[in-house]
């Protein structure tokens, strides 16, 4: 058994993914990162919304939670606040995270709550059969943009940085080792982290855009992959067609949300209670307060 296999729930296979889909590569990268960090499977909870990518947690032999479309971050926020000592991972698709779940995404970034998000960007709604997503490149033909997509896509990294995210990275399914390394690095970050994984959906995006097999789609991704240094030298028009990879932004100076809550709000509320009506009684009973979920 390889190290990462400890984190795989073989009983739940086969997976629903098409042959050649990049989600499987991402699954292995995440499991390998778990193994290299030697995490206890029961100290991990992997949460997801709905979509092909949302099915991934089912295959992790950790605690796993498959929720509603776009809302995984909200469930994860409750878990992280309740149990700040645990590793809370969110797996999300591009539609899941940037369309229906866009509001939760920016607020998780703003709060800097210590959730580790893996955002699998295949540029399309895979599970529902290939409709346009907010991350579909312009001009692409999809089931709901039969004459080409006229909407510009989000630059998800810029969006996240604008919202206050403290760890933003991007990799592609073509680059297994850097992908695994950056995911591992993100797991060690204390605040909110997002690793955007550029993935291939040759079945629902490629097929309608002259890239009907995994090879042609991964080649297309490779052609758009640049380093951040290369990217920074480009004009905005050139940048629009490229995916800069690697660590894009990291800020370790901001405290993580649940840490702030327990270090600032809880003592402040206790101080106020001691000064308020019945304060002496509160101060006397404080020691007897029991915690239901151990912290």
């Amino acid at each position: 058994m390889r190290d990462y296999e400890k984190y795989i729930r073989y009983r739940t296979f086969p997976s629903p993914w098409c042959p050649g889909c990049g989600i499987g590569v991402t699954l292995k990268a995440i499991a390998t990162a778990f193994a290299e960090l030697d995490l206890d499977p029961d100290d991990i909870v992997a949460v997801s919304g709905i979509g092909c990518s949302g099915r991934m947690p089912t295959f992790f032999n950790t605690n796993t939670l498959h929720t509603t479309h776009g809302r995984a971050l909200t469930f994860a926020t409750g878990i992280k606040l309740a149990r700040p000592d645990k590793n809370v991972i969110v797996i999300s698709g591009d539609g899941d995270s940037s369309a229906i779940g866009g509001n939760h995404l920016i607020h998780a970034a703003r709060r800097n709550i210590g959730i580790k998000m893996i955002l699998i960007n295949n540029g399309i709604y895979g599970m529902t059969g290939g409709q346009v997503s907010p991350l579909t490149p312009q001009k692409f033909v999809t089931e709901t943009t039969p004459f080409g997509n006229i909407e510009p896509k989000f630059n998800i990294a810029d969006l996240l940085m604008g919202a206050g995210a403290t760890f933003v990275a991007r990799e592609t399914v073509n680059r297994m080792k850097p992908l695994k390394d950056v995911i591992k690095k993100s797991f060690l970050h204390k605040g909110f982290s997002v690793v955007e994984v550029i993935s291939n959906c040759h079945v629902n995006l490629g097929r309608r855009n002259k890239m009907k097999d995994p090879i042609s789609m991964t080649k297309w991704i490779a052609g758009r992959t640049v380093t951040k240094t290369q990217y920074d030298k480009m004009t905005p028009e050139e940048q629009d067609h490229k995916y800069p990879v690697g660590l894009i932004h990291e800020n370790t100076s901001r405290l993580e949300y649940s840490e702030l809550y327990y270090k600032h709000i809880v003592p402040a509320a206790q101080e106020a209670a001691k000064k308020g009506p019945g304060g002496a009684a509160f101060a006397a009973q404080k020691n007897t307060i029991t915690y239901r979920g151990s912290k």
Binding site: V45, V47, L65, T67, T68, R71, T74, F75, A76, T77, G78, I79, L81, A82, R83, K86, N103, H104, H107, R292, G293, S294
Partner: peptide
């Protein structure tokens, strides 16, 4: 925690319940 909307509020509650609350 004050969440960003009611969908998020109930999501956070379910997550916390599953974490023992």
């Amino acid at each position: 925690i004050q969440m960003e909307d009611e969908i998020a509020s109930l999501g956070a509650c379910i997550g916390a319940s599953l974490a023992g609350k």
